[in-house]
Simulated scan of single mutants.
Amino acid sequence: MTDDLTTSSIARVARRAAGADESARASRIWWEGAADEYQAEHGGFLGDAAFVWGPEGLDEARVRLLGEPDELRGARVLEVGCGAGQCARWLRGQGAAEVVGIDVSYRQLQHARRIDEQTGTPVAVAQADAQRLPFADAAFDVVCSSYGGFPFVPDTAAAVAESARVLRPGGRLVFSVSHPIRWCFPDDPTEAGLVARDSYFDRRAYVEEDGAGRAVYVEHHHTLGDWVRSIAAAGLVLRDLVEPEWPEDNEQTWDGWSPLRGRIIPGTAVFAADRPEADEPRG
């Protein structure tokens, strides 16, 4: 999946439609070039074997959105958009029987292997797209994604359905994305980022293009309702929607996230949904 990748410079920024293939290619381009800087800048916050749901620092060890410790022991878990495998490595430490991480970026997976060697806790990884998971139906007990693939998909229904497909009956899907309300505001951590500018209902993607008009970064905006409807359409039951408050002890700024903004508007949305034990016929 590293074919035709370049580190093209950004010539323009647009709000426009972007399909599945263009979005996946742009994500590969961007993350191949950004992985080193990302891990150097944020690796300390993420930890080598920790599970945080977003820049606020919401810790899975505390909130247990994936399940209690006895539920994770012996489970088969898939992490979508695993980056350097920090969350997957934490899950291994919780006694999960098998943890697999996928990421669209080969360079991110190389960082996963580097941390594997440093910690002595390897995680199984594969290069793959969240929109096309290379696994059999009902292969996992838990599917999770911390800002992994879901912010970058054009079709929420298709992406959620794909994760639901590989989830066994009784299993759980939990994923985090940028809170949809943030799309109304400039991506600015200062007071300038507190003035609404764009329509919440403008679902055009944010696209960075090279000089030839090819997308080299794509991020998609979907409303809360879009996500909830997609979860229901996939046959899942929404159990929780968490909007983390910015904690007093977190003084870091992470791109558009900051204590100033985070204590006024939500920056992250975390969706937790279950697949019923027996799929009910739809009427």
Rank of each mutant, 00 (worst) to 15 (best):
M1I: 03
D4W: 00
A11P: 00
A14S: 15
A14I: 08
R16G: 06
D21T: 15
E22F: 04
A26T: 06
R28M: 03
W31S: 01
W31G: 08
F51Y: 15
F51A: 08
V52S: 07
V52C: 09
V52R: 12
W53L: 06
G57P: 02
R62I: 13
V63I: 15
L65Y: 07
D70L: 15
L72H: 11
G74N: 10
V77M: 05
G83L: 01
L91T: 01
A97F: 05
E98D: 09
G101R: 03
S105V: 02
L109W: 03
L133Q: 03
F135H: 14
D137R: 14
A139L: 10
F140C: 12
F150C: 05
P151S: 01
A157K: 10
V160G: 05
S163D: 04
R172W: 12
L173V: 06
F175E: 06
S178T: 15
H179C: 09
P180A: 12
P180R: 11
I181D: 10
C184K: 14
P186G: 09
D198W: 12
Y200K: 07
R204K: 07
R204Y: 05
H220K: 12
H222S: 11
T223L: 11
W227T: 06
W227F: 13
I231D: 02
R239Y: 10
D240V: 10
P247N: 13
T253N: 00
G256I: 11
W257H: 14
L260T: 12
V270H: 05
P276S: 12
P281E: 04
R282V: 14
